[in-house]
């Protein structure tokens, strides 16, 4: 049976991405380690994403609370708003929305940057300069994305919860102490841990896909645009797939 052309393209791409991933693990644990570039990338990827992530997190918490209120008032469980907001944000919305924002900003940025470096021969120049470009460009960016996204998600969750507090206070007055007490009474370790662990995978996927698309960019400036675009699309898709798998795994392990 002949494999359709689209199937061949998919399998080829999947094979290439798998090889690229294998190459990452091969290079990541061998010296020489590019610590300086890794720290620089943590700053670029993490610190420079703070304002965007903080703003979206705040809006997310505020809007979620305002949207939840009418329904919960109808059911007479208005007092459960902090608990619902906390669970929604910490377990699902916070990690996923932050990862999608991260994919849009960082995935496309990495794809365009490496793509541009590829088509202007900067990656070749690096190799000629005695640098392993994969280690210097790819390993550092993927590692930085993997480390920084969980930190951004923690910050985003905290700001979202504060946004939720303001949302609660638009229609009623609740003290911050009471709000926070209700939030922490609701949250358990089993809510925090899986949500936190999956963010490492989100970060890894966004970094890896961005690097893969950029590193293998071709066909001039058109190729750079396409790399940036497909990096966002593919890494966003990867975030949802990982999220789906994470839910299944936590379900199987009974840590819901």
């Amino acid at each position: 049976m002949e494999i359709p052309k689209a199937g061949k393209v998919f399998l080829t791409e999947a094979g290439a991405l798998s090889r690229f991933t294998g190459w990452f693990f091969h290079e990541a644990f061998r010296p020489r380690y590019e610590w300086r570039e890794f720290i620089r990338q943590c700053f670029m990827i993490g610190f420079k994403s703070l304002p965007l992530v903080a703003l979206t997190g705040f809006i997310m918490g505020l809007v979620l609370t305002m949207q939840l209120r009418p329904t919960l008032v109808d059911y007479g469980v208005e007092a459960r708003i902090p608990a619902m907001v906390a669970l929604s944000i910490v377990r699902e919305i916070g990690p996923v929305i932050t990862a999608l924002i991260f994919a849009g900003k960082i995935g496309s940025g990495i794809g365009a940057e490496l793509g541009s470096m590829r088509v202007t021969e900067q990656i070749d120049a690096m190799e000629v300069s005695g640098t392993n470009p994969y280690k210097y460009l790819v390993v550092t960016r993927v590692a930085a994305a993997t480390v920084m996204l969980p930190l951004l998600v923690i910050m985003s969750d905290a700001i979202s919860l504060y946004g939720g507090y303001l949302g609660v206070n638009i229609s009623a007055i609740t003290s911050f102490d009471l709000y926070i007490t209700q939030v922490f009474d609701t949250l358990h370790f089993s809510d925090l841990l899986p949500a936190f662990i999956k963010t490492f995978f989100f970060g890894f996927a966004v970094g890896l896909v961005g690097c893969y698309k950029g590193y293998n960019s071709s066909k001039g400036t058109e190729g750079v645009g396409r790399s940036a675009n497909s990096a966002v699309v593919l890494s966003s898709l990867a975030v949802f797939i990982i999220d789906l798998l994470a839910v299944q795994i936590t379900d199987i392990l009974g840590i819901n």
């Binding site: 021969e121 900067q122 120049a125 000629v128």
Partner: peptide, 11 residues
């Protein structure tokens, strides 16, 4: 030494 056609300076 290698001088690239596109210069390949790190922007």
């Amino acid at each position: 030494g290698f001088l690239f056609q596109s210069n390949a300076l790190y922007d």
